[in-house]
Structures are given as C-alpha cells and as structure tokens.
Design a protein around this nucleic acid. Structure first.
Lengths: 147, 147
DNA sequence: AATGGTATTGAGACTTATTCTCAATAAGAA
DNA sequence: TTCTTATTGAGAATAAGTCTCAATACCATT
C-alpha cells in the first residue's frame, strides 16, 4: 500500500548528516523518508503533515530546522516562488529550473544549458560571476487545436 | 537643492490612476513623486521614509496599498529577491532582469532578448505560454587582474 | 546494559513583511 | 457648499519562518 521506499538514498542522506557529526533522530529520519518519497515540491507545512504520518512527534519547528540543515548540506533545495511559501525538493535530481502553472500551481522542471551559458555570459559582461540563479517561468497551458 | 522632478511622468501616472476612477490624494502624489525620483530599487519601508519627507502624513499602510494599486495598473513592478523584502521600480524603463550583487546587495539591470526567446521556446516545448518570468543572477564581482 | 555529555526536540513566544479593520477624513461631482 | 464614498492612519491581524529554553534522547564510553 505504502510506496516502497528506496532506502539507499535515505541512507546516503544519513551518511551526509553523520559525516558532519550530526545525530540521526526519529524526527529527521521521518523527514528524510518523506522527502525521498515526494516527487512533487511540497512546502514546509505539507512536509510537516506528511512527516507526522510517519512519526507523530515531529513538530513544525523541527521540520524548518531540519530543512535548513539539509539545505546547508546541499541535500535539499529551497524554492521561493512568487507569493507562496517556500517549497522543497531533494537534490538527487540534477540542476533544473521551473515552470509554474499559474492555474494549477503545478511545477514542471526543465533545463536549458543554452540559457545557463547565456546567463554566465551576461554576468561576465557586467563584471560578475554567477554564484546561483533563479529562473522561473510563470505560464499558462496553451490551448491547442479546436476550442 | 531638491532633484528637479520631471512632472510629465508623474502626470502620466496620475492620468493612469484617474482614468480608472481613482482619486488623487496628497499621499499618492507624494509616493508617485518618490517613485519617479528613485533610480534604485527601494523597498516599501524606504519608500515610506522618502514619501514622508514629501508629505509627513503618509503612512506605511498607504504606501503598501498604493503600491498594490500601482502594480495592478502596471505602473510599478514588484521584485521579491531572495530573503529580502520586496523592492519596487516604475515601469517606464523597458523590461529587464536583474543581477544581485551578493556582497553589496546592489542591483544591476540587464536584458537578453536571446534568453527571452529561449524561455518562450522551452515553455512552448512543454505546452505552455509564458505569462511572466523571473530571472535573477546572484553574483559576485570578478576580481580582475592582480590581487 | 548503564552513564553522561550535549545535540536535538516541542511548545510557544517572537520577528518581519504585509494586509486588514474601522472610524475619521477628504476628494471631487453636483 | 454639500454630499457621497474612496481613501486614510493607527494599530490589530496574519503568515511564514526563527528563536528560546527546559526537557529529552542520541550515542560514545564504560
């Protein structure tokens, strides 16, 4: 019934935490599991809700705290889309940017090496080097064919 | 002493408001003037501070309310950069994206028709049409030449 | 297995940015 | 000038996220 969890990634995340002298708690494990299972881009509240199903003791404060830690360790990415709470995803997928469906709030991922290259070029032209970037396309579905 | 204000743009903004049946108040006029004079990207607080120098009665609530109205009328743009309050600028300059200097928090504007074109192309490939986008390059100055 | 040092926790207070409420005020049409 | 009603200031309310602190629980060591 429950989605079968691929423990290997969770263990990899555990390693990453332990490697920097952090303790593995029930709460963190629950959150790691939830993050691993998520294939959408949940916000902190939603992650809290899901984590509580795994371990009822997980508090929202701990979700935020752990997400910060995971972000520092580069295990999750935080995305602050327009006018909405931040949403999170694990970093196991390679870098990508986002299309936000304005109607459904659905997120579609995409990559464009060409755009990335142009970004670096533009920055360099202004005497800068790109540390990170944010590229979001707020879109509507194209009504194709007949109305 | 005071920067000489080009009334024509302020009047244009007044028109835009009046045209949609809005009243022109001292407070709104003060904010319009401040926005027109600003060549940086101030946040609501800073705009409030500046507006109060023009008209001490302007409240922060009115600054926010008016900014919303102006945004609806497409007279100002709101930019929510990472981890900072929203910053505003008038729309009289043509569309552009932003480089954010991570050290100085300075904002540099740039345009890249090529990137814009690629964005539309990527979106279309996913069945979407771009309504608006957000492209921000978080950068550091390149240390050129000798250290 | 028991112990102890200390990282981590939950609950709730706090902060920051922004929006809302509501009675008082003031545009601007008549 | 008067009247209608949009707009205002002050401060309460909200939303997302962070901080505080005493209690708890990892986990290295015995």
């Amino acid at each position: 019934m429950v989605a079968d969890v691929d423990d290997s990634r969770i263990q990899a995340m555990e390693e990453a935490l332990r490697a920097t002298g952090m303790r593995m708690t029930r709460q963190r494990l629950a959150l790691l599991q939830v993050l691993d299972e998520a294939d959408d881009h949940p916000d902190a509240n939603e992650l809290h809700r899901r984590a509580q199903e795994v371990d009822a003791t997980v508090s929202l404060a701990t979700v935020y705290r752990t997400l910060s830690v995971l972000e520092d360790r580069n295990i999750v990415h935080r995305h602050a889309f327009e006018g909405a709470p931040a949403r999170f995803e694990t970093t196991d997928a390679p870098h990508h940017d986002h299309i936000i469906d304005l109607d459904s709030r659905e997120i579609v991922e995409f990559t464009s090496p060409e755009i990335e290259r142009l970004q670096r070029e533009v920055a360099r032209r202004h005497g800068y080097e790109v540390v990170s970037h944010r590229l979001e396309l707020y879109c509507r579905k194209i009504k194709s064919g007949s109305a």
